[in-house]
Design a protein around this nucleic acid. Structure first.
Lengths: 187, 187
DNA sequence: TTCTTAGCACCTAGGTGCCAAGAT
DNA sequence: ATCTTGGCACCTAGGTGCTAAGAA
């Protein structure tokens, strides 16, 4: 999905947050290599604030502008991939997709969704936790690693601000086909 | 679902098996109590042959009759509940449902579905595996337990034989609403 | 003859942005 | 003013038994 993420990122990616929880589109997907095929790993995601600012969208200039200091943030939740834990061979066999992850703006959320502040910017992070066999010397290795893909940065919103983002979502998300003017397959 | 299982069982429950895999209806659901809330458990199901016979349905007498000795059976697969492993408190909090379990007649199935022989009778079994804390003396307790509910016995088929089973499936399975003559809610 | 398969219309379940109304 | 919510029509995805055709 990197090319699609890049396309969104150039416009300034926006992700909807709702009380009930909303999926990300594009979904965060990653391919891993170099794992020990027979060892157990947990893979997960979290979201860190890109900065300590609150934003608003200036329709006049068609761009995001700083609207003050960030609202108070709860300590971020961690989204464990539902297949965790699993063997390295399993993780490496196919692309790891976090398509069931949901974003919410409900501070009291009880469904384990990721809680974000609307009008704030976030950077998704991908984490791998290695559960070494008992025989190994843990002191010499990294048990916890994380990876950041800058093109997946986004601003949380409750309604899309940049109309070009809306258009790109409609054009590329299969679930939004009903809003397309013409079939992009015709191109 | 016990009353529904009983209703089917009185007629002689049939379950469809397909190459791609078919869900069971009714779904196998169970409630557990008495677990250690803080210990890990795995819960799972398997299916054992009720007998060593092959059956056919006699439309003449509207009943199942023995049609010979059972075909050779592969050693039965085990279906691990997708939430396994989890704490006792989690399992006891709500009904445990195996509604994603699928039955297939494809001996070469690669999707982890339960492989059954059509025209044979099976008894579902529910298993609980207890992972005791290291401090406990394992020798004195049962780590592996299983439970059988006789009313969940069924015959695997590739097409329904008993028309009354078909009618009861249509009347009680929400996905088969399209085949109903009238809305059962009207009763 | 009996059993099995694939495609079908009809459902459930839930993911889209839109829009109007409400909240701050 | 700006932000947020709930209901909506329109989709995807996949679970039903039916039917006709094919296989054993």
């Amino acid at each position: 999905m990197k090319s699609l993420w890049d396309e969104f990122n150039e416009l300034g990616t926006e992700m909807i947050v709702t009380k009930a929880g909303r999926r990300m589109f594009p979904a965060f997907q990653v391919r891993v290599t170099g794992m020990d095929p027979h060892a157990d790993y947990m893979v997960m995601m979290d979201f860190v604030a890109s900065d300590d600012k609150r934003y608003r969208y200036s329709f006049h200039s068609s761009s995001w502008v700083v609207a003050g200091k960030a609202d108070t943030q709860m300590p971020g939740r961690i989204h464990m991939h539902p297949d965790s834990p699993a063997k390295g061979s399993q993780w490496m066999k196919q692309i790891i997709s976090f398509d069931k992850l949901k974003l919410t703006n409900n501070l009291l959320d009880d469904n384990g969704h990721i809680i974000l502040n609307s009008m704030h910017s976030y950077q998704p992070r991908f984490h791998v936790v290695y559960n070494p066999p008992k025989s190994e010397d843990v002191s010499e290795m990294e048990v916890f690693k994380h990876f950041i893909f800058p093109e997946t940065k986004f601003t949380a919103v409750t309604a899309y601000q940049n109309h070009r983002i809306t258009q790109l979502k409609i054009a590329s998300n299969p679930f939004a086909k009903g809003f397309r003017d013409c079939d992009p397959n015709d191109w």
